[in-house]
Computed example of a mutant assay.
Amino acid sequence: MELLGILSPPWWLLLLLLPALLLWAMHRSPWEPHKCPADLTGKTVIVTGANSGIGKCVAMDLARRNARTILACRSQERGQAAVEEIRAATGNPAVVLRLLDTGSLASVRAFASAVLREESRLDVLVNNAGVTGLPFAITSEGLEQTFTINYLGPFLLTNLLLDLLKASTPARVVNVSSFRHSVGTADSAFLTGQRCPGGYDAAYNSTKLMNVLFTAELARRLEGTGVTANALSPGVVSTSIMRHFSWPVRALFSLLRPFMKSAEQGAASTIFCAVSEEAAGITGKYFDSSCRLALPSAAARDAALARKLWEASERLTGLTEQGHPPAPPPAAAGAA
């Protein structure tokens, strides 16, 4: 009886409430997309990797804001299913699918050519597509597949669409990174597989560091153009990104799901960077999963490293051979 008395309210109630409060605090964001009044009527947006997870939630939100929403997906079947779902949920008929595999530079070029041919403007580009858990492999183009999908493909895509973004100002580039960038290494030899970072996690972490470095250098090169570029972390989110891992890892991931954000919650920081008034005019920055400005790792703030990575990426994607406009000289105070 004494034991029953101890377990009766309020102690038993507190034992139930504490985990619930912990989960609520972890998932809560001070900025909520549904409270943002931004209207994108007459604007065009592209979201890569938009057939599932965070990308689909971002595309859903932008379509609700009346944007012409282009889902850039690798799978025709899954991409078209997402298009139909978003059209039905938002009532926006201007939601379309365009095939894109960021792991293939040829696919990136074909996609960009179609966009430049068919679209008169581009107001927001969301580089969301990404993978983890893929084995080390060299593509037919001589590039390592994870680094190409997560970093080099988006790098090329953004550069090919820059003129259209500049013609549509104010415009935004949003690069989805991760808090795990802080333990990554930005070695350009990883891009061609000359060196291997040492595992699935290490490869993913390094691509996310490269995303932040790319964002910083892109913002520097775009100063004064009216196009902003920012990177962000969505937080720890329950999505299908772990599908390439072994079943024990996926099982552990499933056990931890109650402590993770949903895809919809994880999309908040991406949507914040894409449409919020608070982010307007901010460029070259990194936002955390609570939509707050955060200081990225020391490596991510290395301007010399960012320029070196950019130059290597230009060579590997062939942008230098295309007569890509030269970079502005670095500011004296920004030399690393």
Results as ranks from 00 to 15, higher is better:
59 A>Q: 00
145 Q>I: 15
12 W>R: 13
34 H>E: 15
235 G>Q: 04
177 S>Y: 06
291 C>M: 07
283 T>Q: 12
333 A>Y: 11
299 A>M: 09
191 L>D: 10
127 N>F: 00
136 F>E: 14
317 T>D: 12
46 I>R: 00
191 L>E: 10
47 V>Q: 04
282 I>P: 07
17 L>R: 00
223 E>P: 01
307 R>D: 04
31 W>R: 09
223 E>M: 09
107 S>P: 03
287 F>K: 05
16 L>T: 03
127 N>E: 04
94 A>K: 12
197 P>L: 15
323 G>D: 06
142 G>W: 11
293 L>K: 10
76 Q>S: 03
280 A>R: 15
269 S>V: 05
322 Q>K: 14
161 L>W: 08
23 L>S: 02
86 I>D: 00
126 V>M: 01
18 L>H: 04
1 M>P: 08
194 Q>K: 15
126 V>D: 00
42 G>W: 07
201 D>M: 15
65 R>V: 06
132 T>A: 14
113 S>V: 06
172 R>I: 03
300 A>N: 04
139 T>W: 13
320 T>C: 11
90 T>L: 04
48 T>L: 00
158 T>F: 04
284 G>E: 07
324 H>S: 14
115 V>C: 07
214 F>H: 09
82 A>R: 00
180 R>T: 14
111 F>D: 02
14 L>Y: 01
16 L>M: 07
181 H>N: 08
69 T>K: 01
201 D>K: 15
199 G>W: 14
226 G>I: 11
34 H>I: 15
93 P>H: 08
246 S>V: 09
86 I>E: 02
111 F>V: 02
298 A>H: 09
236 V>L: 09
13 L>T: 12
81 A>T: 04
2 E>R: 11
35 K>S: 14
40 L>A: 02
6 I>F: 14
57 C>T: 04
147 F>H: 12
199 G>A: 15
29 S>P: 05
198 G>P: 13
302 D>M: 06
19 P>K: 03
284 G>I: 06
140 S>D: 15
113 S>L: 10
212 V>W: 02
12 W>F: 15
106 A>L: 14
51 N>M: 00
7 L>V: 10
267 A>V: 05
193 G>C: 13
128 N>A: 02
220 R>F: 12
9 P>S: 08
255 L>G: 05
185 T>G: 11
12 W>V: 13
298 A>Y: 06
266 G>A: 03
184 G>K: 11
227 V>R: 08
261 K>N: 00
77 E>D: 07
201 D>E: 15
148 T>I: 11
243 R>Y: 04
100 L>V: 03
152 L>Y: 07
19 P>F: 03
239 T>A: 03
65 R>K: 07
271 I>P: 06
266 G>E: 03
138 I>G: 11
251 A>P: 04
315 R>M: 11
325 P>W: 10
253 F>N: 09
16 L>V: 06
288 D>Q: 04
108 V>S: 10
184 G>F: 09
140 S>N: 13
201 D>S: 14
98 R>S: 01
146 T>M: 13
273 C>A: 12
266 G>I: 02
261 K>C: 02
162 L>N: 05
110 A>Y: 05
294 A>H: 02
192 T>F: 13
